[in-house]
Design a protein around this nucleic acid. Structure first.
Lengths: 120, 120
DNA sequence: CCAAACCGTGGACCATGGTCTATTGTTTTG
DNA sequence: CAAAACAATAGACCATGGTCCACGGTTTGG
């Protein structure tokens, strides 16, 4: 598919897709036509973009996502790939704990706010 | 305490502390001396900074943190404060789910990578 | 056929969240 | 008392992660 369709199906703008490609998060095959140089994307790229989106949403940097994508796909060294993935997984686990802490803090704050509210 | 001590105790740089203050995340009392205009911070600010740091680490924006700090402290309208906190809490809960999804994805990826590794 | 819609590239532009650098004034301490 | 350490302000600077724009080529639908 061409970038327009990929954009539509992934929910990312054409610009963002090109930006991700330039940064090595995805890649396109060479154009099918001889007369243009339109990017051509396989269906797999759609799945990859979904992962990238999720990753971005939870705050994984472009640089780290590039490492991860490389680990998933083009890695010639599986044990290196494993390391990358394990490391990022651990990082996310830590992040989970941190968020839980903040949530607890907010819960405590809520209790106080409600107390201050009087007889509710 | 003065900014140097606060910096030391909070682990944030002086610049960052001034930046946070300028952005309304914390505030200092007027200087005690007549001859200087050094910021003077109460111990409470240290706690506030700890929360701000945690918040930043989990990706809460400066703008949102400002709202939260306002809700915790200077809010004259407790029900408004409650709304702010409840909303952010919900957002973090969503974030938790998203991260869990990404972790699951990484787990699945690990399985595949290890399969590819052969007889381990 | 030709206009609209699409694609490519390069570079400017933007917000966010700091960080660094002068420059100047204040305090502390040996 | 003088130097070192600390503080203030303003503004430049930086990385990240896009977003937008201008310009020119290609494709497609009526």
């Amino acid at each position: 598919m061409k970038i327009g369709e990929l954009s539509e199906r992934s929910g990312l703008s054409r610009d963002t897709i090109r930006f991700y490609e330039k940064n090595g998060l995805i890649s396109s095959s060479a154009s099918q036509s001889e007369t243009n140089n339109y990017r051509q994307y396989s269906d797999d790229v759609l799945l990859q973009l979904r992962f990238v989106s999720s990753g971005r949403e939870v705050g994984i940097s472009i640089a780290d996502l590039r490492e991860l994508m490389k680990a998933f796909f083009a890695s010639c060294d599986p044990s290196e790939a494993e390391n990358v993935i394990v490391a990022k997984r651990a990082e996310l686990k830590t992040r989970l704990e941190q968020i839980e802490n903040v949530v607890s803090f907010l819960d405590a704050a809520l209790v106080k706010v409600r107390e201050g509210l009087g007889d509710t």
